[in-house]
């Protein structure tokens, strides 16, 4: 940690080197006291790149909880004693990402400046890296259109360990999708089940062609045990695909607005029945949208952006 105390023990030449790395303005003409001040306020809880690398290695080598506590303390991360290991890991990870970002940031911009001064920044805005995983067990289904559903998922460390063990035994993870339309699903009574091999933890999303509009699906990730039984690891929310056909119901419901009276009448069908534009094939690859309007609103501001130079330069 870059406490005032630690910094004060360093030589002026060393402090200048650090200040130079941090792009502190006018570091070369600063006195020791000023250097210490500048470094300590600029980067509280700084961890230098080599120790960051060490921490990363340690995090990946299944550390013990006391090691994690030690690191957290060193990095100035506050934590509760009863905090679980994965929670603590998540915090350390987040903190690491931020530190790396800080380092990059201080290398690329000249002034950090206090925000209340409302400094104008040079150079393009900084783009942060986001965590690749949030270290949680999660399987989510999202409807794409009447016949496609998107699934994405994430694993906790415990689950990753399980996946590793499965991999050693040569087993893959399976994604199962169940059609549970109008069913109180108990794991065995789905109308249909589809199964996909999703490997060993690297794939984290999938588009499934379910082919039924207005239907409800649920999915699970799991594996087959020695008895060939499907063991569930993750289960998704239920996903409903949009309808794409006229209702066949035989009754209309009406409301009389002045009296609040509700009543039913036999359905008369649609008096102004449209000639339907063929809703095209289900596609979700962006290149198919190129050169086309992608909203029918006419052109959300950027939907018809210039494709290149006009070719008409004078």
């Amino acid at each position: 940690m870059w406490s005032v105390e630690n910094l004060s023990r360093k030589k002026v030449s060393e402090l200048k080197r650090l200040a130079k790395n941090k792009d502190i303005r006018g570091y070369y003409k600063m006195r020791k006291k000023e250097l210490v001040q500048a470094l300590s306020t600029e980067f509280i809880n700084e961890v230098d790149p080599t120790s960051m690398e060490k921490i990363r290695l340690l995090l990946n080598s299944n550390p013990r909880i006391f090691e994690l506590r030690r690191i957290a303390k060193k990095m100035g991360i506050t934590f509760k004693r009863n905090m679980k290991k994965d929670e603590l890991m998540e915090r350390i990870n987040r903190s690491l990402v931020r530190h790396e970002k800080n380092v990059q940031h201080s290398n690329s911009s000249q002034t950090t400046g206090s925000s209340s001064d409302q400094k104008i920044e040079p150079g393009p805005p900084m783009i942060p890296d986001l965590p690749k995983s949030y270290n949680t067990d999660k399987l989510v289904g999202l409807p794409v259109n009447p016949s496609w559903v998107h699934f994405y998922w994430d694993y906790s460390d415990q689950t990753l360990e399980l996946i590793k063990r499965l991999e050693k035994r040569g087993q893959s993870l399976l994604l199962r999708i169940y059609d549970i339309t109008f069913i109180d699903f108990d794991g065995t009574n789905a109308h249909q089940v589809w199964e996909y091999d999703i490997g060993n933890g690297n794939t984290k999303k999938y588009y499934a062609n379910v082919n039924s509009p207005n239907a409800t699906y649920i999915s699970e990730i799991g594996y087959l045990n020695d008895d060939g039984e499907f063991i569930t690891i993750l289960r998704s929310n239920s996903v409903h695909t949009p309808p794409n056909a006229f209702s066949q119901k035989k009754e209309e419901r009406w409301l009389d607005l002045s009296s609040g009276y509700r009543f039913s009448e036999p359905a008369k069908g649609i008096l102004a029945k449209p000639v339907l534009k063929g809703v095209g094939k289900s596609s979700f690859f962006p290149h198919e949208f190129k050169e086309r309007r992608i909203t029918s609103g006419g052109g959300s501001f950027f939907s018809m952006m210039r494709k290149g130079n006009s070719g008409g330069v004078e």
């Binding site: 259109n145 949009p242 009406w254 596609s283």
Partner: peptide
């Protein structure tokens, strides 16, 4: 409007093909 039909609309967007695929596809998922 004196009488109005009670109904639940189906899913809709005004994106290409009328559903969610403009907002969830390989480019942005």
């Amino acid at each position: 409007l004196e009488k109005v039909q009670i109904n639940t609309p189906g899913d809709s967007t005004w994106g290409a093909n009328g559903y969610n695929e403009v907002w969830i596809n390989g480019a942005n998922d």
